[in-house]
Amino acid sequence: MKNENPFDDLEIDPRLSGRELTKRIRKIIEKAPADERAEIQANWEKLTLREDQRIHHALLAHPRPESASAREVSTLRTNVPLPTSKLQNTAVSLTRADVIVWDEAAVSVQHLIPRYDQGK
């Protein structure tokens, strides 16, 4: 199966409604270099001309909620609010999530954290 799903190509959430989709793709086109716009336009048409096609492609696209944003990690990192809590509230067992919050402290505690968090 060729990976030519428009949702995957455009890196957008397949669960967006038709209206949200149009809004999002318009933004993508605005930011895209001129030579990429035609391809984006083609994908837009694939998703908006026929409702059954939009749904078909959405079902064949990887779920991509906001929490699975395709932005660069460095951008995602800058989006994280600065920690406001105090270290004494730290959970006894640290997870990767804790490290993200205490990004500054990450380097020193990294070795304490299981590589693959097995808890839920």
Partner: peptide, 11 residues
């Protein structure tokens, strides 16, 4: 204080 931004970075 966990936010969607934290979750996105974690994921």
């Amino acid at each position: 204080w966990w936010s969607p931004a934290h979750q996105a970075l974690l994921n």
